[in-house]
Write a protein that binds this DNA or RNA. Structure first.
Length: 588
RNA sequence: CGGGAUGUAGCACAGCUUGGCUAGUGCGCCUGGUUUGGGACCAGGAGGUCGCAGGUUCAAAUCCUGCCAUCCCGACCA
């Protein structure tokens, strides 16, 4: 198929659009692949649409290959199923809600667990029908507070979501593994290097969960990668190692000291080091202190309960990690009003002995895993201007449990092998997780087992960001001058540039080459524009990013064409007579 | 939702401080001509509710008030 640049619906931009910051957004706009139509909503132009469709095609092939079957739901969905699972309210302001002319509530689907569950319930009722794997490629709607980065986070986007239905956990594991391997194939074919990391299942519920992240500075997810072993995890899901308990038999008794004007860790450490009577072999440091952070947890019904977390003073509580731990409860700051209601808590001097469910305030108190038995700490004494030194965990205070929610840093020790871990950013390309029976239970999806007994079906849920993949591929495959599509998703196989003078042999030679390539099944973008200078043609070709560019120009007089590999950056001269075959071979 | 910035032609921007005639520049677009291997040149054109609404004024892109939108950072985010 020949697509002529003289008639193709596209206009490249010379200047970078001011609204675009990251490379993929900038280049997709400049090269004429997409246009912004609404905040978080993009129009796909012919070239962009072809990339999107090729990505969809690869996803379809791999899903079909594992035996999943494609269906298609409406994006416009009724309220009732989402009421049944509580997501009509749980989803909060991120859900697009609307009403029909009679005032009946609808929503635009953000994801379709409910509909798939009900569909299977509608049609199946026997264990003999299981397992079944269904998927769709669908436009999803989420009223994101802040869409950004072009296609990377929109309010309307294309996602492939699939769901597995099994009788038991062993079946679920098989379904999960099949999807996981399909995803590995999909991302390999898309030219996306992905890292598979342990993830939190978040508000979706369920157990085992992994994310496929494409490492990129533009990514919104943070993950750790062990420098030695194969441990990789989203920072939300990192579980740090627990040190062994030291010997505390020589630790002196706890001592309350006056520490006026030390509301922060740094001021406290400075004061400790200035006190002659507290000198020890190593100077006091932030990691000797135990910081007690208070938050409020909010239930769906709006009620709030306090929670205290003790972390070493050199670390902060990572709110994302805490949110992940307490989900579906929401974390709110502990406000002035909350302090006022509990006058025994002295801001800046809160100590473990005021915390814990056994204490009068009854505040649940959780400790960072680093705070193991027999470790000694400097911490608040629950009195203004006073701290306590040598407060030993287990000897002098106790907590209600462990909370691994302190921030994770570059070089932190790997929980598996203790080697240093690296922190990186990534774009979430896919997410697989074992949903379990949550949706099946509330929506009543049961089948009869071989003994004629009703059994609740167990589910898995698997997503691929299809439109996001287009951006991620662009993010990963470009250089300073333009896009460089992998062959598997490029909108065209070859970009043929006619770069000669009017009336010379270049135009017929280019036409003939394009015809030969097209006849062999290649998609050819032919720059047949007249009155356009060669510089513009070259720049446009480089910007648009087809993997191969053929220059039909001054070489024609000597019987040769110039074949440029946009990915490798190489240029080869090929005799005209052999050119078509050469290119076809390269594209195979 | 908090912080910062910006709204002037398809794209990038100037003009606003200190109000003044017909709102400018570059790119892109149209017509004619000269060009043709790295974003050509000459001449002539088309294209604008200056984000919206109100106010001040003889006069508003410019000053005032309110609103809206977009972008960036953060919060949030199956």
């Amino acid at each position: 198929m020949i697509h002529r640049l003289s008639t193709l619906f596209v206009r490249t931009l010379r200047d970078d659009p001011a609204e675009a910051e990251i490379p993929s957004h900038r280049l997709l706009l400049r090269a004429g692949y997409i246009r912004r139509a609404a905040p978080g909503g993009y129009t796909w132009l012919p070239l962009g649409l072809r990339v999107l469709q090729r990505v969809e095609h690869i996803v379809r092939e791999e899903m079909n290959a594992i035996g999943a079957q494609e269906v298609h739901f409406p994006a416009l969905l009724p309220r009732e199923p989402y009421d049944a699972t509580g997501r009509w309210t749980d989803y909060g302001p991120n859900l697009f809600r609307l009403q029909d002319r009679r005032g009946v509530d609808y929503l635009l689907g953000p994801t379709h667990e409910e509909m798939f569950t009900l569909l299977v319930k509608d049609l199946y009722s026997s264990y003999k029908d299981l397992p079944v794997w269904l998927y769709q490629i669908q436009t999803k709607y989420r009223d994101e507070a802040r869409p950004r980065a072009g296609l990377l986070r929109g309010r309307e986007f294309v996602m492939k979501d699939s769901y597995s239905f099994d009788l038991d956990d062993e079946g679920l594991q098989r379904s999960y593994d099949a999807h996981r391997s399909a995803y590995v194939n999909i991302f390999a074919r898309l030219g996306l290097d992905v890292v598979i990391v342990k993830a939190m299942s978040g508000a979706m519920g369920g157990s085992a969960s992994e994310e496929f992240l494409a490492p990129s500075a533009s990514g919104e997810d943070t993950f750790v990668r062990c420098s030695q072993c194969d441990y990789r995890a989203n920072t939300e899901a990192v579980r740090i190692g627990t040190p062994s308990a030291p010997d505390a038999s020589n630790t002196p008794a706890a001592l309350v000291v006056d520490t006026p004007n030390t509301p922060t860790i740094q001021t406290l450490v400075d004061l400790l080091n200035s006190r002659q009577d507290l000198q020890r072999t190593t100077p006091w440091a932030a990691h000797d202190t135990l910081k007690n952070v208070l938050v409020m947890l909010r239930q769906a019904d709006g009620s709030r309960t306090p929670l205290a977390i003790g972390v070493p003073g050199d670390r902060d509580v990572d709110m994302k990690r805490l949110e992940a731990l307490v989900a579906p409860l929401e974390v709110e700051p502990f406000g002035e009003g909350d302090f006022a209601a509990r006058p025994t808590l002295i801001k800046g001097y809160i100590g473990p002995n005021a915390l814990g469910e056994a204490q009068p305030l009854g505040i649940r108190y959780l400790l960072d895993p680093r705070v193991v038995a027999n470790t000694a700490w400097v911490t608040g004494a629950n009195a203004p201007g006073r701290h306590v030194v040598n407060l030993v965990c287990g000897r002098d205070f106790a907590a209600d449990g462990v909370a691994d929610v302190a921030d994770v840093r570059d070089n932190d020790a790997c929980p598996m092998c203790s080697a240093p871990m690296r922190i990186e950013r990534g774009i979430e390309m896919g997410h697989v997780f074992q949903l379990g029976r949550k949706y099946a239970e509330v929506l009543g999806l049961q089948v009869l087992d071989e003994k004629g007994k009703q059994r609740v079906v167990t589910m898995g849920s698997y997503g691929v960001g299809v439109s996001r993949a287009v951006a991620a591929i662009a993010e990963m495959h470009h250089d300073e001058i333009g896009l460089r599509w992998p062959r598997s998703v490029a909108p065209m196989d070859v970009h043929v540039v006619i770069a000669g003078k009017a009336g010379d042999q270049t135009a017929p030679a280019g036409e003939q080459l394009a015809a030969e390539l097209s006849a062999s099944g290649l998609h050819v973008l032919l720059d047949d524009r007249t009155g356009v200078s060669p510089g513009v043609r070259f720049k446009d070709a480089e910007l648009m990013g087809m993997p191969m560019i053929v220059i039909v120009g001054r070489g024609v007089a000597n019987g040769v064409l110039e074949v440029r590999d946009r990915i490798a950056g190489t240029t080869t001269e090929v005799p005209i007579a052999e050119a078509a075959q050469h290119i076809i071979t390269c594209c195979a």
